[in-house]
Amino acid sequence: MSEKIATREAYGLALAEFGAQYENIVVLDADLSKSTKTEEFKKKFPDRFINMGISESDMMATAAGIATTGKIVFASTFAIFAAGRAFEQVRNSIAYPRLNVKIGATHAGITVGEDGGSHQAVEDIALMRAVPNMVVISPADAVESRAAVKAAIEYDGPVYLRFGRLAVPVIYDKDNYVFELGKGVETAPGNDIAIIATGMMVGSALEARQKLSQEGINARVIDIHTIKPIDKDIIIKAAEETGALLTVEEHVVNGGLGGAVAEVLSEYRPTIMKRMGLYDQFGQSGKPGDLLKLYKLTPDDIVDEAKALLQRKP
């Protein structure tokens, strides 16, 4: 767990890698190619890269138009502009006609850091999850990000891919990791409590699990990389086997991973749970590490919440 790579970096490299094999991939960006890392694709395939300028809404509907000709289109910008500013273009021009556009949304969550609340998407999962036809993927590390890009290419339809700015630990082994769209990953076993996380919070959950084990608590860690369609079975099984579920996400708890898990539990197997994330708050400027402390999303915070939740376990 020593190597650290940002998932946006893995995204750009994956586009450049798969661009050779899939000649019908076209990549669009909105004046952020250095940050979203789509410049990796641009360097190798300049003829299939289009810089749309600072015009995110225009970019999304243009991507839809390109996709009508049978191409696989990746459209990239920061998550706040992809899911936020261009929401309705994504909804009506991409999702409604179910066109083959992949939205590569980078700089999601508070670990954007210093740029502050205006640039930190903390509601994009909720927005994208609500849109019919949209698949929502939030990878945990570089290995899963590469695999998610490949899965998105092979899937025919709209996909929202959520990546982070911050370099995060690589937690999976790239030779053995298998990505299945719509299936969660039991990243680590345990039967006292299940910590269900997404994105970079999976790495934090694994750290928390280690600390908990020193206190004799065996926590299962589940990585929900596909938030929609969500893997009901892995959640219900965890509820049955552990009886206490803690969700962790770099997003508001309303409508995100926590909301999605709560929906599954309340319909299929009511179980005590706690949702960790932002509580009806915006982010703010600060170093990513300072913000994770401020918003109580560190491994130590996960440990505290896990222990508090265990107290409530019947």
């Binding site: 502050g116 609340g117 400027s285 600060g286 300072d290």
Partner: peptide, 12 residues
């Protein structure tokens, strides 16, 4: 641009 500052990365 520091956590808690009145001076955010973008005007607030």
């Amino acid at each position: 641009r520091q956590a808690g500052s009145i001076l955010q990365g973008h005007p607030d």
